[in-house]
Design a protein around this nucleic acid. Structure first.
Length: 276
DNA sequence: CTATGATGGAAAC
DNA sequence: TTTCCCTCATAGC
């Protein structure tokens, strides 16, 4: 089961896992909850050809059918269930994609609950979604220059801009806080006060962090030198500032602060991230 | 057991 | 800028 926080890394990881599980095969599609019953009937029995991840959005493409658009939002979760003995999906399951894994013919079910969006999506609707998305650090075709271009049109605080999916797609509240800490940039800094060099470095930092998250399935930003050694990183050692208000900074021991920015709490160490 | 809040974002004012 | 929706782990009684 995947319970990673649904920022862009989770979405790209799901795309990769779901491709391995079901693309190229015929898929049984259902909606035990019933809220996607009509759409499921349209897709049921068709071949799943490709899955695209863009920012926090997923597009499942079936032969001779509209695309399936999924956005997890804050509460959405996918779980993967394998084997014939697996318990049936719960009644709150919005969507089930069931088939056999091409690699070994294992029965696989992908079960979705609580999504913000689970809908059929024609090309015009998909174009509208894409038009609202800035460059995605997890898309190898996207470059820092595209991010700099979006920043050049803005004056808001960088901490606000990073949550705006039109400016950069896939960053959420954890990566916002952690990337700004690692770059030594205070969230309230207006983007107009940032150098091109700093913006480029911030983009590259997000590429690195999101890539690691998509690989591992969790967000660990703290370098080994800044946390206890040993095996698996504990939850409380995974972040520098996110959800650590009042605790000492791992680098300078100053108390981490939290305040609302862009509608959500942001976290920073004013010792390591000088206020503007 | 119920209350709370969380990673997101669109719609309503 | 605030409200609302979606689900579930965790905190508190």
């Amino acid at each position: 089961m995947l319970r990673g926080m649904p920022e862009g890394h989770t979405i790209h990881r799901l795309a990769r896992l779901h491709r391995a599980a079901l693309t190229g095969t015929t898929v049984a599609v259902s909606s035990p909850q019933g809220r996607f019953a009509e759409g499921a009937a349209v897709l049921d029995g068709r071949r799943l050809d490709t899955i695209d991840a863009i920012g926090k959005h997923l597009f499942y493409r079936f032969s001779d059918a509209p695309a399936l658009h999924i956005h997890l939002g804050l509460f959405g979760k996918f779980r993967t269930v394998r084997g014939v003995d697996a318990a049936p999906p719960g009644e709150q399951t919005r969507l089930v994609l069931a088939g056999r894994q091409p690699r070994d013919d294992t029965p696989v079910r992908l079960q979705l609950s609580g999504p913000t969006a689970c809908e059929l999506c024609d090309p015009a609707a998909e174009a509208a979604i894409r038009a609202r998305l800035g460059p995605d650090p997890l898309d190898p075709r996207c470059e820092a220059s595209a991010f700099l271009a979006t920043l050049a049109r803005r004056r808001a605080a960088i901490g606000q801009v990073l949550l705006d999916q039109r400016a950069i797609a896939g960053v959420g509240n954890v990566y916002r806080a952690e990337a700004l800490f690692l770059e030594g940039v205070h969230p309230d800094t207006p983007v107009t006060a940032l150098s091109a060099r700093t913006c480029t470095s911030l983009w590259q930092r997000l590429v690195t962090l999101l890539t690691a998250g998509a690989r591992s399935g969790r967000i660990v930003t703290v370098a080994p030198a800044d946390r206890p050694g040993g095996g698996r990183v504990r939850r409380e050692d995974a972040h520098y500032v996110y959800r650590r208000a009042g605790l000492p900074c791992r680098r300078c021991a100053e108390a981490i602060r939290a305040w609302p920015l862009g509608g959500r709490p942001v976290y920073a160490c004013t010792g390591c991230q000088p206020p503007p």
